[in-house]
Design a protein around this nucleic acid. Structure first.
Lengths: 202, 202
DNA sequence: GAATAAAGTTAACCATGCTTAATATCCGGT
DNA sequence: ACCGGATATTAAGCATGGTTAACTTTATTC
């Protein structure tokens, strides 16, 4: 197991470079949802008009108009005034990808991490447009494999479930392969677990 | 394994509610980095001043001043004009939590998903402030357990590595427990895998 | 104990992504 | 053919998170 603690060091230099890339991602969170709304409407009723999108997303029609201008400028939709909205090929690809991402992440959160459904939906929705394709394909592989009927996967599921149950009790246990030297997860990674279960702060 | 395809349906109604919560998360991406910068500077040199933060984050000093106003208004830092910046208890907790999140996610991406380091750093950084505590604790448990020397975990690591290697070849294989009826992942989840490996679009 | 350099703040501006209110366009009924 | 209602757009405003330029405060040096 890689050393957790060592990596807990403060934000390194490169972090700044990455941080600044947040705002020039291909898609903002809003844009991703507009694209998905257009794709969904197209599928549901054959066409997407400004009012439909506004209803679906719960925003004003003027908001839709201005967002369509942005998406148009990026070549993701076409939209002549007072007409229907169409996805371009690039727009369609991005919409599909974002949906796939949310879908895979939701599966991962519910069936592997086993968090409550609402939590899974929320977390998946928040990050669906931010996780890169390399990681996404691996999320899919991991989810598919853990859920498969490969004997190693089946055994793993059982063992992991037992471990979680044990670990939730937070009792140090020399028998547990994750608890090192009788220190359970919470003590093995001091200051790490504790940061998670304080709940929302405000 | 839960049915993937069924969940691939279009964005359901509740998605809108979740989407709109994006902008009232506890922390924005920027705020998270300011808090971490303050915490880091405090640790590295004992105090955090406006110029230090500006240098560290590569933003202008006036930008720092105005962000400190926001953070101050939220009760996450204290800062009297021309003085040093201090984290409040709430600010410190959020900084610690965000760092833990990035840390656990980076571990997960590198040691479990095994994506390249830069990808892991980038993806972890993008979502560190967006994943809820329930999911984070489960990410930690999963990462710790898969990396442990529990026999089920060891066997799983091997099997998963083999599966990935096999799957990367994209050959349908009746022997593979993930490939259903001789259809490999790519065909079992049509339109899903394909969306991932087209690379960045623009 | 000034003069000046360094550090910090304010002011004015820009882009994004929303809002409401007012205006413009399109379309069906008479 | 034209009028009203539905639909869509523009205009103006707001909050966030940045920028540069100008100004103020603090610190240092002689």
């Amino acid at each position: 197991m890689v050393n957790f603690i060592q990596h807990a060091a403060n934000q390194p230099r490169w972090a700044v470079e990455i941080w600044k890339r947040f705002n020039d991602k291909e898609l903002t969170h809003s844009m991703a949802h507009y694209l998905q709304a257009v794709a969904g409407l197209k599928q549901d009723k054959g066409h997407a008009r400004v009012g439909d999108i506004a209803d679906r997303l719960g925003v004003s029609k003027s908001g839709v108009t201005s967002m369509l201008r942005s998406l148009s400028a990026r070549g993701l939709v076409t939209h002549e005034p007072y007409g229907c909205v169409e996805l371009t090929d690039a727009g369609r690809r991005l919409a599909r990808r974002t949906e796939s991402n949310r879908h895979v992440l939701t599966m991962f959160f519910t069936s592997i991490l086993r968090v409550p459904q609402e939590v899974a939906y929320e977390d998946a929705c928040m990050i669906e447009h931010l996780v890169g394709p390399e990681s996404m394909i691996q999320f899919l592989r991991l989810t598919a494999f853990i859920g498969s009927d490969d004997p190693a996967a089946e055994r793993f599921r059982t063992a992991f479930r037992e471990y979680q149950h044990h670990c939730a009790g937070k009792e140090a246990d020399r028998e547990c392969p994750v608890c090192k030297e009788g220190r359970c997860l919470a003590e093995t990674f001091p200051g790490l677990v504790g940061t998670f279960d304080e709940g929302p702060l405000k």
